[in-house]
Every structure is written in structure tokens, then in C-alpha cells.
Design a protein around this nucleic acid. Structure first.
Lengths: 120, 120
DNA sequence: CAGTATCCAATCGGATACTG
DNA sequence: CAGTATCCGATTGGATACTG
């Protein structure tokens, strides 16, 4: 199964297909990097700290396959490729933002809970 | 690194810690199973189709460590253990629900995009 | 610049067997 | 009933080298 295939367990809950993508280590960070507008491959790589070339390519391909990101190639030398959120991708920003807001607001509570558990 | 440890890349974006958890194959399904109130281990196992004993245990331990789920042991024979969402866990239901709603509403668009890609 | 190809160590997770 | 322990095949993802 590649990243473009569909998980067999997704049948149990259709939203799994999207949540799996969102849960990818890099997906949300890449979407975040694209919030400000079109970006080149190397720009995204610089913005998303720690991502490898392989994973950036894989993540972008998956987002493109899902129709969340659009890829534009400018036929120049050296190559010039830009990625930007599609309308569908931008529509994801709102619910995703709500979740991230929740995460930021409740991170302290979760962390202190984790510390209590780690200490015991 | 166990499921209870913190990902080194989380530093780049604190919300990663929560998104990683949400992205777990089973986490959202388990939270979903607990929406209706306290459930026993075996009840959750039956509700979450396809989950193994190992992964259910692991998922519940992680949710408990994060303070999202509370575990109550009734000292009986045979053992009786109930899991329920904490107040923090219930507060997650709203933003998570918004994301799932988006996923359900846009699943068609994503799937047809995937099919276009698969066909080419 | 924007990738692709390959190798490989680490992690994940299902199956199975066992226990208080 | 509600777990724990162990094995092991499958998947993940970083590092490295190479290319139009």
C-alpha cells in the first residue's frame, strides 16, 4: 500500500481517510507552510523544519492527489515549481484551525497529565 | 520511543503532539466509541471494528496519559473496568467533530480527485 | 531547482499464548 | 474480564547518491 492507496480500515469510518492524512507527521506542517500563498519546493523545505526531501515530495504528492494542493510547473531552466492550496485545501483551514486552537489551548493540561503519568 | 513519549519534531509545532495522537489509526474511533458514555474494555473492542487487544490497550493508555480518558476499576471478580471521556476529552469533541464534518462533506471531492490521479 | 532511486535501521501492529 | 508478553512480518522514513 502506498500513501496514495486507501486504508482497508477506512471502511469502518469514512473520515478515517482524511484523518489519516492529517495525522501524517508532516501534512499539517506543509499545509501550514502554504497558508501564506504559493511556495516553491525549496521554500517549503526551509519553512518545514526537519523535513527530508523524500517526505516533502511524498506529502505534496499525497495532498495533490487529494485535490488539496495544486502544482504548477513553470517550464524554465533551472526548474521552477510552485505549490498552493486549492479551494478545497483552503476550506480545510477553518476546521483544522479550530483543532489546532484547541491543541494550543489545552497543551498545558495534556502535558501536565503526561508528566504526572511519567512520574508514577 | 513509546507511544507515551514526546516526538522530537513536536518542538517545531506544539500542536503536533495532539495531532499525532489524533492521527493514530484508532484514537478517533475509540473517542467516538466513548461519546455515548462509560464503556467497558470489551464493549469498546466490539464497537471499534477490527481493533486488536494490543492496540486498544495501547490507545486507551495513551488517552489516559493525556488526561482525555478516565479509567475506573471496580474491584470485582471477574474484573470490571470502565473507560470514559474526561471533561478535557469531551471538550475535544467539538473541534474534532468540526473536522469530521468537513471530512464527511468533502470526502466525495477527495475521492474523485484520488480516482482521477489513479486513472492517470 | 526539483526531484527520483535505493538502502536500511527503527518502529508499528497483528497474531498468539499466557495470567490474576 | 481485562489485560500482559513475545514474536515477527510489514511499513515508515532518514540518509545518501544520482539526474534532467
Amino acid at each position: 500500500m502506498t500513501v496514495l492507496d486507501v486504508d482497508p480500515y477506512a471502511r469502518a469510518c469514512p473520515s478515517r481517510q482524511l484523518l489519516d492524512r492529517i495525522g501524517d507527521r508532516w501534512t499539517v506542517l506543509v499545509i501550514n507552510a502554504l497558508e501564506d500563498g504559493p511556495q516553491r519546493f525549496s521554500q517549503i523545505a526551509r519553512r518545514v523544519d526537519g523535513i527530508s526531501q523524500k517526505m516533502l515530495t511524498q506529502t505534496l504528492r499525497a495532498l495533490e492527489a487529494d485535490g488539496l494542493v495544486e502544482r504548477t510547473v513553470y517550464p524554465e531552466i533551472p526548474p521552477h515549481v510552485e505549490y498552493e492550496l486549492s479551494a478545497l485545501g483552503r476550506s480545510l483551514l477553518e476546521p483544522l484551525g479550530a483543532l489546532i486552537t484547541w491543541a494550543v489551548e489545552n497543551l498545558g493540561a495534556v502535558q501536565s497529565s503526561r508528566e504526572r503519568v511519567a512520574a508514577s
